[in-house]
Nucleic acid binder design. Structure first.
Lengths: 130, 130, 130, 130
DNA sequence: GTGGTCTAGACCACT
DNA sequence: GTGGTCTAGACCACC
């Protein structure tokens, strides 16, 4: 488990931890059943208060991404493939809505948006080959 | 000038005001030189503290979107068309980068992303006709 | 707003606060839009840490019972009558399921259960008249 | 002896074990004198620490439901029928009090409560026949 | 004034 | 060892 938090960022530290763990679960890097580091250890690693980590774990538990119990520790919850896929799509759709709202306000039409998307896709592909 | 603020939203009210005025300027709805409502009147309309509106106007002035002078009121700043266009494109590109990063992490490929974008474009088109 | 918390109880203080506020909302004692005491004030009244109250308010907000915003304070959320009724019924059904499970395990049959329920109903009625 | 514990549940594992053994004794499934599985074996079966099982047995012994002796193992204690019946009724009454308190707070009247109880009784009956 | 975040340190129950 | 709760005290952004 490699996480990185920025004290300078304006998004709360506990959100950063949450987001990164969620991402790793959704991308398959963290498989169901994988044990998570104990709150104390992670807190020490990240040079952060235990309470901050606790809040992240609490939210992840509430949202069903991990299970956690006193004396047992925390684990990646058993998540079906369909759930993961669905959640990933939901996130992309959210980003698309944001994109289209931005385009609409700026008077950028459908054709231009598709062009920009493809331009960036190509840029990404180049990075992978380099 | 029609603005709407949501007390429930988690983005600060002054940011909401800022964003909406910026949007209207960038989309051409608010042309250069147009007078903005006085802070007091806008505050009353939105049922919001004058200080909140003041903060929004302050930020817009700082970013060069409007000019404000004591006793004169506030006006949309003279902004070249090319500047507006460029700013709009920059925003869309930002949203596209965000979208592609989200897709990449979730293992959603190019084809699926394009499909989702088009699906939402169609949805938007329907709303306009209804 | 009259609340009472017991330090001795084994249910967490923040849960006690949550439950009592929920109850008052569900029973109509606290109407939609009613302002809640600020966290600091309630904490002082209850002789409890601000953080404890905060956790209660956070949970209530997450569950949609109240709205809360920095600089604005907290308010009972706009909840439809049907929602309130539905939530109340849900709670009773939960209690009934628990009751029947207990009865089933102990070999107490339907007739006896109804008898006990009516006995307690009568007892309650007497208390009201006394 | 068939027991099942849920790691996910928020009630402690030792309580789950306790409750289930108590239930089986009270319902007559486990008769007086019946030998209980050794702590080690039960621990292994349930994939749980021996200490956890020990705590459950300890509490059951303290409450008089079982007897335990070093080198002899554990057995269901000799419990009179009247004791069992009385204990069962006590539990049901507890559940009824909880139910009525919930109903009272939610403004659900006697008639509705009885209806819900009967609805759930019918549902239970159906399950048995299926 | 308000709530949101973070800290350090404590005690507890559970495994 | 683990996580859950509570404390007191701090700083911040928002209204």
């Amino acid at each position: 488990m490699t996480l990185f938090v920025s004290q300078a960022s304006d998004t709360p530290i506990y959100s950063q931890i949450e987001e990164q763990i969620k991402s790793q679960i959704l991308s398959g890097t963290l498989a169901s059943g994988t044990p998570l580091p104990s709150m104390r250890i992670l807190a020490k690693d990240l040079r952060v208060s235990v309470i901050t980590v606790q809040k992240a774990y609490e939210n992840l538990t509430r949202d069903g991404f991990i299970t956690t119990g006193v004396g047992r520790g925390s684990f990646v919850a058993p998540l079906g493939d369909s759930f993961l896929k669905q959640e990933n799509i939901r996130r992309v759709e959210e980003a698309v809505e944001n994109l289209l709202e931005t385009a609409r306000r700026g008077g950028i039409d459908k054709k231009q948006v598709i062009e920009i998307v493809e331009k960036y896709f190509d840029k990404e592909a180049q990075h992978e080959n380099s």
